[in-house]
């Protein structure tokens, strides 16, 4: 009995020290980045501009057609904003996973593997960054879209905590997709093309209601590359009252499941790491 209790306290202590270390590594990453303030400032401004131009594309499409397959401008704006938020959270904490290719090609993962810590713990905080551009853009669209729908009585204030929940589970789903994609790199080394498909293209596709696409693609975006779980599925309930409240436990379960799968795959991938010569 005491042994189990001891085990639990020691595991708890480990988790606590991991969190402390994680925070230290994030601070370190920010300090490193601040060595190049000009680059940081310019990067933030450019990111905001790119985000703006991306939304302009969507806005132009919406302005021309008014609605997409029965989804109003505000509803599509909502889909867009949820995706932006989830992606921002994923890329704020897990950007280095997205850039794993660099570690594989240059053998940089070696150093992380010599540390007595989980590789993801030392890998992820390496490029922690606050993505101001994305936050501002996503926030503006979200306020505009939700504000209009609250005003028209389409949704109640309950939509806000529900949206926060969807954004968080969405971030977990996007991270899991990113991690599983990156893990493929342990076999193929180069992964940028695969990422174009599973991350960039899939995320862009899910900015519109999935009913827009042929059936098979809709199914694909809810199962194999489940980006539809990030915004489309929750929006069906939160905005349109379809499905049921069970959407939320389903989202949580799905997020845990894909994350678990991605982590297992990652652990297996690391055992196939090939490093580089010398």
């Amino acid at each position: 009995m005491t042994e189990i209790a001891n085990n639990r306290t020691s595991r708890l202590r480990a988790v606590r020290s991991y969190i402390k270390l994680y925070r230290l590594l994030i601070r370190t990453s920010i300090r490193s980045r601040m060595q190049y303030r000009f680059n940081f400032a310019l990067g933030s401004i450019l990111a905001a501009l790119i985000q703006l131009s991306e939304f302009l594309m969507v806005a132009i499409v919406l302005a021309k057609f008014g609605s997409v397959q029965g989804w109003s401008v505000h509803e599509v704006g909502y889909l867009f904003a949820v995706m932006t938020f989830s992606k921002t959270i994923y890329r704020t904490f897990g950007d280095e996973v997205h850039h794993l290719e660099r570690y594989l090609v240059e053998g940089e993962l070696d150093q992380l593997l010599t540390k007595p810590l989980p590789v993801l713990l030392t890998l992820m905080p390496r490029s922690f960054r606050v993505m101001f551009g994305e936050v501002i853009q996503g926030g503006a669209i979200m306020i505009w879209a939700l504000g209009a729908m609250l005003g028209s009585g389409q949704v109640t204030w309950w939509a806000i905590p529900q949206t926060v929940f969807a954004v968080l589970t969405g971030a977990v789903v996007l991270f899991a997709i990113g991690l599983a994609t990156a893990t493929c790199g342990f076999w193929t080394t180069r992964i940028s093309m695969l990422q174009n498909m599973t991350e960039d293209a899939a995320q862009t596709a899910a900015r519109y209601p999935l009913t827009l696409y042929p059936n098979w693609m809709g199914v694909l975006l809810l199962t194999a590359i489940p980006v539809g779980l990030v915004n489309y599925l929750p929006a069906l309930y939160i905005l349109r009252g379809e499905l049921g409240i069970w959407v939320f436990p389903l989202l949580a379960a799905a997020a845990c499941l894909v994350l678990l799968f991605a982590l297992r795959f990652w652990a297996f991938g690391i055992s196939r790491y090939q490093s580089t010569g010398s």
Binding site: L109, L113, T114, S271, R272, S275
Partner: peptide
């Protein structure tokens, strides 16, 4: 290097 990396737990 391959040997050292195997010894150090980097390469399986």
């Amino acid at each position: 290097s391959t040997t050292i990396k195997m010894l150090a737990g980097i390469l399986h």
